[in-house]
Design a protein around this nucleic acid. Structure first.
Lengths: 134, 134
DNA sequence: CGCCTGTGTGAGAATGGTTCTCATGACCAC
DNA sequence: GTGGTCATGAGAACCATTCTCACACAGGCG
């Protein structure tokens, strides 16, 4: 029996800064980006700390992770309910979309093949209106 | 105007070996795995060559790529028509599933938000019957 | 209010998957 | 066969991420 494991998250300047930056930005950003941004505005935070803060936020369900095509991780502040993303391939703007029949479909297909404990991962990529007009 | 760019793919022992191995295996394998397997059975192929062969196969649409949670790429021989995957989280067994209303749904949602040139990426993860029984 | 303890931090090193370099080898059109 | 490319392979380079470890600070307690 594993205990609930509440890791007693301390509130520090660095963690606050990372979350605040994510709140302020739109779309997915890599850890490297966030680190560079914080540094630019004089709010110096170590790279390792940015990674740790992001992991903690992901664990708490406050932030989404996405793997870009080249394997780099991108993070985004999100609402804590299940949803998917519509991401602009060019500028990174993101729209959260509530989920459709996909839920039911995934569950049904999985059951048909004898799979249990099902999760799914769906991202839609496209070019947003602004970028298409350039 | 860019020419069609047909890179004149040569047939070599190494590329044949990589594709043959993928044909033979089931489920997604990392480049490192494939390299180790080839080496074990005495069919020595350089690691860089495995990566190059896999990229060529992906470009030709003969192989699918998937990014595992830690960013490692996994490859799998696949049918050249659009489809999604049902992957066992535990043993890696994969089932190709033809896709459902998701196609239409993705297109519609994208259009509603002014996105063009839409692609999507959907993977379903679960525990297959065999693994669940252990 | 100040101490204490354990958690958080940061710089740099380590890790590990992937890509690059470049000299050498092999495919294949002629 | 021959030649000109393209492919190969060993190792180095690259780069995102994680680890290490000494030091700093949050925050509960006296």
């Amino acid at each position: 029996m594993s205990a609930p494991e509440v890791p007693v998250r301390r509130q520090t300047r660095q963690r606050t800064a990372v979350l605040a930056l994510l709140e302020e930005l739109d779309g997915f950003r890599t850890a490297q980006d966030l680190h560079a941004l914080l540094r630019e505005r004089g709010d110096a935070v170590g790279l390792a700390t940015v990674y740790r803060a992001l992991q903690a936020l992901v664990d708490d369900g406050l932030v989404d992770v996405l793997r870009s095509e080249d394997g780099e991780a991108a993070y985004r502040r999100c609402s804590p309910v299940h949803h998917h993303h519509l991401v602009c391939r060019s500028c990174g703007t993101t729209v959260e979309v509530a989920d459709p029949p996909v839920e039911r479909w995934a569950a049904r297909v999985a059951a048909e093949h004898g799979f249990a404990d099902v999760q799914h991962q769906l991202e839609v990529f496209g070019t947003c209106r602004a970028c298409a007009q350039r």
